[in-house]
Design a protein around this nucleic acid. Structure first.
Lengths: 155, 155
DNA sequence: GTAGTTGCAAACGATTTGCAATGTC
DNA sequence: GACATTGCAAATCGTTTGCAACTAC
């Protein structure tokens, strides 16, 4: 019993693909092989990906998939909050998986742009305290530490 | 006594212009009216400035000053650490005065965009610890807490 | 069948660069 | 006088858009 109506309704087994499909449906957009492939390949990366690497890997599987489609799809993924976009100084953007990933802060090398993710429980605690002090309800935060990594310092 | 050799050598009364001039000299670059004007107008802004506003205000004083010169000069100012560049999602950059400005973090209301500046000594301490742990030399940081302020919550 | 989607190429906008004339040291 | 700098226009680069053919629903 309760056999076929058990997935979406329970909100338990939702994965990125289901969320994406739902979002598309809601907005009257279509679930296409290209969108599926882009999400698949995006998820196969860890951490931050830039368009270039993404496009390159996609080309290996389907050389006909145009870069315009990639940009368009990433925009939708950002809209539906599965992906987060970041901007860098060279004018390029990088994209980061957002769903089911613990929140973390970033340590960024200003020379090579190597990015390390970290968490710090105490800092998060103080953030809440600061907010309370000013009468704010904390929704989210962003912390970026800019520095020079070991390798770059050697040069 | 000790009358004319008292400025640069004591490193006391150094202002942005002296620093810029020194830097130019060191690198075998020239101190030009354009560079002077760009620094002047840059400093006349508070906080973040984008190229567009900067260029606009410069045009009022000297319509012949080309945008290429502005970009080139800002690059030098970033090099000599008087200015910091930030990238935004729209692909534009913004520039921030870096010298003799106290660092602060931001608490931002996501509804009315009210912004409060704050500092927290302990958080800064932990930031340094984290960097050391990963072999980074900390240069700067950015922390933004996004939340809802009292006023907006009441609505 | 109707709308959304795709790939392509052209367009775009911010930033950079080559160059001849000019200015600084 | 040597060499950096300027303004201009053209080039560049990442990203976006218009469009005709195509595809999901």
């Amino acid at each position: 019993m309760d056999f076929d109506n058990n997935n979406l309704s329970q909100n338990k087994m939702l994965n990125e693909f289901d969320i994406f499909k739902d979002f598309l449906q809601q907005k009257n957009l279509r679930w296409t092989p290209q969108r599926k492939m882009i999400l698949e390949i995006f998820l196969s990366f860890d951490g931050h990906v830039d368009i270039e690497s993404l496009h390159q890997k996609i080309q290996e599987q389907d050389p006909s998939l145009g870069i315009a489609t990639l940009y368009r799809t990433l925009k939708i993924l950002v809209d539906c909050e599965l992906v987060e976009a970041h901007s860098f100084h060279d004018g390029k953007k990088s994209y980061e998986r957002k769903f089911r990933v613990q929140h973390h802060d970033h340590l960024i090398c200003t020379q090579c742009e190597k990015t390390i993710e970290f968490e710090h429980a105490l800092i998060e605690k103080y953030q809440i305290e600061i907010c309370e002090e000013y009468g704010f309800t904390l929704k989210s935060h962003k912390m970026e530490l800019m520095g020079v990594c070991e390798n770059c310092r050697k040069e």
